[in-house]
Design a protein around this nucleic acid. Structure first.
Lengths: 153, 153
DNA sequence: GCAATTCGTCAAGCCAGTTGACGATCTGGC
DNA sequence: GCCAGATCGTCAACTGGCTTGACGAATTGC
């Protein structure tokens, strides 16, 4: 270690940048022109099932007001649908629209492509190890689940 | 892979968050109360030697106006000094002040502590592998040097 | 049944980035 | 030398996305 260690935080910032920039460079080429970076984590949160709006702040790690505006924006461009919470007339339920599901598919394809270029450098095995190690250390502090993301896009 | 892959981008966002939040939770406890997240990358850039202001936009990956304001803020709280570029009367040179150097030391200590908790989960060896793999893949696309960070704090 | 809490939104403010424009200085062709 | 054009840094105005504060509507618990 003759030269000073690059802080892990910087490496993560760079890795995140590389992937997110790669994604948002590619999406317009595939016809998706109204995707904001913050949409990604909402798509992910809604991936498998509708979600109550009240749960999103904790999932995303931001305020309910920020979530409200973010969901507004995604409803406006047609990626999610917001309807009534069947069990609580105060509440709202949010789910992917068909278009949102198509976008999620596109996002996952682009990420898969990008990760393939990583695999080309590292090899499948080290890439899998990278993912496993990151998952292990991140979930170790939060009882086995991945913690919420906050405000990084 | 029975459940869907967590995108690497999300893992990086989480890792970055965990480390940067850990840093900015700890710094005030050590008496550093006026440190903004964005300062970190400037400290790093000035670590070894004074730098010409004109080079910082490329290093940090933002506009010269943003750099100007950021350096303003760091000068105002006494972490860096901005004086004339000896070779060009239009230009400015930026360097760490004594206080800035002390802050950098504190930051590196805190990061070392945080990375120790990571090593406690992963072991030294896998942590070193993580760092090596990340460094390899990130510098592979930019000719062996790490690329600039952009606007992530 | 009524006080206290929760859900979502509106509104205003803030922080950090952007683009545009400008004075000051440097550079290169003549 | 000199002058047109480029470069350096800053000021200003704007933007996006977050925050906090406050509120109406609906629910919960005593």
């Amino acid at each position: 270690m003759s030269e000073p260690e690059v802080p892990l935080a910087r490496l993560f910032a760079l890795g995140y940048r590389a992937l997110v920039d790669g994604l948002h460079d590619e999406l317009p080429r595939r016809g998706w022109t109204d995707v904001r970076p913050a949409f990604g984590f909402v798509l992910l949160a809604l991936r498998d099932t509708p979600v109550l709006l009240r749960d999103l702040p904790a999932t995303l790690g931001t305020s309910k007001q920020a979530v409200s505006k973010l969901v507004d924006a995604m409803v406006a461009v047609g990626y999610v649908e917001r309807d009534a919470d069947p069990g609580d007339a105060r509440g709202k339920r949010v789910q992917l629209s068909d278009r949102g599901r198509q976008l999620l598919t596109a996002v996952e394809e682009v990420y898969a492509d990008l990760e393939r270029t990583w695999a080309a450098v590292l090899g499948e095995e080290r890439l899998a190890g990278l993912r496993a190690d990151l998952t292990a250390v991140l979930s170790s502090t939060t009882g086995g689940r991945l913690p919420p993301v906050r405000a990084v896009g």
